[in-house]
């Protein structure tokens, strides 16, 4: 009897699973979007992560923070996707596409500083992108970020500081360029 109760306590039914996803699905999608750039790819990735989590639903509750675990799965899935792309040489195609986009954007960019920031973010390393996304966009505590990325808090702060300085430097470059 007791054991049975324990089992039901740890297993998630569909409704619980959906309730669990509801508050974090946007976060997961935004992280995918940050890393994969294309909306289509990010939507697919989010969907696939949902499936992965659903398959693991029986153990989901055993994690310290299921949310952080969901974010970890998202992060890893996206990084895998990027690796796959690189292996398939799709990266080159994607870069070409990006280059074209930036050159086109540069013409309009003078007015659109936000696009410029997003372009700068793309130039950061994957790890820096993840950290900026989790801290500055999602406003997560360092403990949560640590759980998601598996990095130590001090390492996170150092990497984040580097990323923020890089972004600032790039924005300043643009600003000065514009005024001269």
């Amino acid at each position: 009897m007791n054991r049975h109760q324990d089992e039901t306590k740890h297993k998630m039914n569909q409704q619980e699973f959906l309730a669990f996803l509801e508050p974090i699905k946007d976060k997961m999608y935004r992280l995918s979007l940050r890393l994969l750039v294309s909306k289509e790819a990010a939507e697919d990735a989010t969907q696939e992560v949902f499936v992965k989590l659903w398959n693991k639903k029986s153990t989901l509750k055993n994690y310290n923070s299921p949310e952080a675990f969901a974010m970890t799965v998202t992060k890893n899935h996206c990084l895998d996707q990027l690796k796959l792309k690189k292996n398939n040489n799709l990266r080159i195609v994607h870069n070409n596409y990006e280059d074209e986009k930036t050159s086109l954007q540069k013409q309009i960019e003078a007015k659109d500083e936000l696009n410029h920031v997003s372009e700068i973010l793309k130039s950061l390393s994957e790890q820096e992108q993840i950290l900026i996304q989790l801290r500055d966009v999602e406003q997560l505590e360092y403990t949560e970020i640590s759980e998601t990325t598996g990095m130590k808090e001090t390492a996170i702060r150092v990497s984040l500081s580097r990323a923020r300085k890089k972004i600032r430097k790039e924005i300043l470059k643009k600003h000065r360029y514009g005024t001269v």
Binding site: D26, M28, R30, E113, V117, Q133, V137, Q139, R168
Partner: peptide
């Protein structure tokens, strides 16, 4: 632009 960007990014919905 940096902080406006972060603010705007947070509004993206799945």
């Amino acid at each position: 632009p940096l902080f406006t960007f972060f603010e705007k990014e947070q509004e993206i919905k799945y």
